[in-house]
Simulated assay, not measured.
Amino acid sequence: MGPMGIEKPMQPIGGAPVVWRAVSAMLSADGISRVVVSVSHNTPETERYLNGMGIETIRTSGEDFMMDLHDAFSVLDGDYVMTCPSDMPLITDIAVEEALRAFRPEMESMIVMVDAGLVRRMGITPSYTREIDGKEWVVSGLSVMDRKGTLEGRYLREHCLLTDWRELAVNVNTPAELELARSIIG
């Protein structure tokens, strides 16, 4: 998002930082037993804010997604971990619970996808889409993964949960998406 003067996770939307909206959804969802937020040297304000709210954080490099994922997974326990980006301001506990209900351990990895047409109708141009069964889909960022398999470096079978969930359609990656999220939330 470039130099906005405020770290991306701390951008206010509807009176709360965007990161708090994602954390709140996870904390409120049935089936989530622990919430840990990855922070880095790039997000010191976010780390202070979350720690002040009593939210557990883990410091990662912030340089490489997979490396950060491994760092976070190494401090967690349990067989499966749900990951959620901090820039999904519309996410709800209901969407989190629906995704958890759809996951089965034999899947190993489940990525929640959103109908690209819905994303476009909301005024967002997806930066990356995938075609599945002749239709375009956008990766939402919400996923469930086999924690031990990931840490062992095993290739995980990938399953896609195909949705039309508006709650997962907006990721705040540009100033225009930030303004869109603010207008939706009010």
Rank of each mutant, 00 (worst) to 15 (best):
91 I>K: 08
117 G>E: 06
102 A>Q: 05
121 R>I: 10
110 M>P: 02
85 P>C: 12
86 S>C: 12
117 G>S: 09
89 P>T: 07
86 S>D: 15
113 M>C: 10
94 I>Q: 15
116 A>F: 04
110 M>A: 09
99 A>Y: 08
91 I>C: 05
99 A>E: 00
102 A>Y: 07
102 A>F: 04
115 D>H: 01
83 T>R: 11
111 I>T: 12
82 M>E: 06
89 P>G: 11
120 R>P: 01
100 L>V: 07
105 P>H: 01
99 A>Q: 00
101 R>E: 14
98 E>Q: 15
121 R>P: 01
98 E>G: 10
86 S>F: 14
117 G>I: 07
114 V>R: 07
113 M>E: 02
90 L>W: 09
88 M>T: 13
104 R>P: 08
101 R>D: 14
90 L>E: 05
121 R>M: 13
95 A>R: 01
83 T>L: 12
93 D>N: 15
113 M>P: 08
96 V>W: 00
117 G>V: 06
81 V>Q: 04
83 T>C: 10
93 D>I: 09
106 E>N: 14
90 L>V: 06
110 M>Y: 00
100 L>Q: 03
92 T>S: 14
99 A>S: 13
89 P>F: 00
112 V>Y: 00
102 A>L: 07
105 P>R: 01
119 V>W: 08
94 I>Y: 14
101 R>S: 13
114 V>M: 02
116 A>V: 07
97 E>T: 10
83 T>V: 14
114 V>T: 06
89 P>M: 07
89 P>S: 13
91 I>E: 06
92 T>L: 03
121 R>Y: 08
82 M>T: 14
119 V>E: 02
101 R>W: 10
